[in-house]
């Protein structure tokens, strides 16, 4: 649909179109370079959207499309009339906003700090080490964290007792209200280095002459960071921000599930796990699809809003 605006529209008003048409002709290489991929993505990403019809059916695998029973909006009504859904939504949003704030700014800072390291071998080593936890699965990381926070010889409690901050071990994992923080910090631990790579690359693209010039002008390090590094990676920061805001409702469930336990369940259950438990795992494909559609609509709305806001404020946008 969007393509039509770009490609030729033969039988429309000649004059205005002609100029556009000639621009298009001028930009023929740009079309050659993009249209095949547009078609590609339409085939692999847009065509399967017919599957959304499932949300309006009582879908049973094995029956043909015509044999399915149509139920209208029943699956959506079921979702919105379920009080549990709102609890799950609250947890999802809480944790994703926290991770947006922390898990997003820290990697930027980390990349900037890494860039300030002048000893090249040390810089490379640090960078390599920092991303290693990315390759350790959540099962393992969750196990490590639970052990560290354990009351039975966990290092955090031992440390706190040693410095007399507490006199009895604290059950960190048994406090629902702490759970969101624990998840956010664990995520930071695991993904900070990996997520900073993108900003590191963006920093590499900054013209080194700018730094040299600033040095000559007597600008200190903070000034250089503020006036050269940050503006240099601004487009990347903004685009990542806009894209992440669209993902606020879809944060996966693995880490929450693995770090959680039955005592903190009221704080740990997220939307994606809810879909899994009440959708696919029960063979309720239609319900799962309905949640997916709601999720997509919310995501796209968030994306469009944040895109507009950022465009107005910062002049950066994805669309």
């Amino acid at each position: 649909m969007a393509m039509e605006n770009g490609t030729a529209l033969p039988n429309t008003t000649p004059k205005r179109r002609k100029s556009k048409w000639s621009v298009a002709l001028e930009q023929k290489y740009l079309f050659f370079m993009s249209v095949p991929f547009v078609i590609w993505i339409i085939i692999f990403n847009y065509i399967p959207v017919w599957g959304w019809t499932m949300a309006f059916q009582k879908f049973r695998p094995g029956l043909s499309f015509r044999e399915q029973t149509w139920v209208g909006f029943d699956n959506f009504v079921a979702l919105f009339s379920e009080p549990h859904f709102y609890l799950v939504l609250r947890n999802t949003l809480a944790m994703s906003i926290m991770s947006l704030v922390v898990g997003y700014t820290v990697p930027v800072l980390f990349a900037i700090l890494l860039n300030e390291l002048r000893h090249m071998a040390f810089k490379r080593t640090m960078q390599t080490i920092s991303y290693l936890p990315h390759f350790v699965s959540w099962v393992v990381v969750a196990g490590l964290i639970t052990k560290m926070l354990s009351t039975d010889g966990g290092i955090v409690n031992q440390l706190l007792i040693a410095i007399h901050a507490i006199d009895k071990p604290i059950q960190f994992m048994a406090h629902g209200e702490w759970f969101w923080g624990i998840v956010t910090m664990s995520d930071l631990w695991k993904e900070m280095g990996w997520n900073s790579i993108i900003y590191l690359a963006a920093i590499s693209g900054i013209d080194p002459e700018l730094y040299d010039a600033a040095k000559v002008d007597g600008a200190g390090r903070f000034k250089r960071i503020w006036h050269i590094t940050l503006p240099g990676i601004r487009p990347t920061i903004m685009v990542m921000m806009i894209l992440s805001i669209g993902w606020l409702t879809s944060i996966g469930f693995e880490k929450q599930f693995l770090l959680g336990n039955s005592i903190v369940q009221d704080y740990s259950e997220v939307l994606d796990l809810y879909v899994l438990n009440y959708g696919i795992k029960m063979g309720r494909f239609s319900f799962g699809t309905a949640v997916g559609i709601v999720n997509s609509i919310v995501s796209i709305m968030l994306l469009l809003i944040s895109n507009r806001v950022f465009k107005r404020w910062t002049n950066e946008s994805v669309i």
Binding site: A2, M3, N5, G6, T7, K20, V23, A24, Q27, L30, F31, S34, V38, I41, I42, I43, F44, N45, Y46, I47, P48, V49, W50, G51, W52, M54, P61, L243, G246, W247, F285, G288, T289, G292, S296, S299, I300, L303, V318, I319
Partner: peptide, 28 residues
């Protein structure tokens, strides 16, 4: 300056936020 920039960006960026689901992709 690309005239279809906005439209094509839109087509691409949307794919990040929806999926047809595992069954239709499998059939495709």
């Amino acid at each position: 300056d690309f005239i279809a920039r906005k439209q094509i960006s839109f087509v691409f960026v949307l794919t990040l936020y929806f999926s047809g689901g595992i069954i239709p992709v499998y059939m495709l």
